[in-house]
Amino acid sequence: MAPLLEIIDLRASVGDKPILKGVDLVVNRGEVHAIMGPNGSGKSTLVQAISGHPAYTITGGSIRFDGVDIGEIPPEERAQAGIFLAFQYPVEIPGVTNAYFLRAAYNEMRKARGLEEMDPIDFIDLLEEKLKLVEWGPEIMRRAVNAGFSGGEKKRNEILQMAVLEPKLALLDETDSGLDIDALRIVAKGVNALKRPDNAYVVVTHYQRLLDHIIPDIVHVLADGQLIKTGGKELAFELEARGYEWLTGTPERV
């Protein structure tokens, strides 16, 4: 069976500025990968490029998902194929309720798989179970998507969406940033509960803190658009203790 995600020599830029300069990465089902690295190294770009963010141009290499080259397909089809990006900065959409948004997304996924749309009543049942996971009551569904949400609420909402959409590959982009310890616990709990042998996670983080809660199988260090080191979870501890300078050779920009 082909790896779930196979990235070969990926190069991407914003405008004329190269950000990713040849990234190779293989993620198999059942694995949790952490991507760490200094600020500006290209961590967010990598996961955004995988999910099809229009700001980035792929200038070389390839991204294969489930054995299919997805480099040219639009973001919605990548999502329908099973890729989910938990945003670092989830977007506020005043005027659309969480309930409407989630059901619309869920039904698009079903349609893409040739299934009937789920009616609102059945969807409420499904939601009830997912809401428990992030320790929320149903009232959150009547609020507009992320509008006026605290930083922690926005991240929890990302995890809720992930729980509903059940992706094969979840990309968590700095999901720990701006979280207090309680929100961090809830987010990590959600992620761990959704872990299955047939799905995988790529967790982007600057700090080791999140990795106390979501234990990675493999840790990569990204610096200046390239993966410069790969190791086990102990690599995260080493980075926490020593910083990135011993690997990158340059003091980190803060």
């Binding site: 973001p75 919605e76 945003f87 977007v91 959409i93 997304a105 698009e108 893409a112």
Partner: peptide
């Protein structure tokens, strides 16, 4: 907002629906 559009499409919602 292109970012909001991407947010919706990244959840599987087709671009025109977004």
């Amino acid at each position: 907002d292109p970012l909001a559009r991407f947010y919706l499409t990244s959840r599987g919602i087709p671009d025109r629906v977004a």
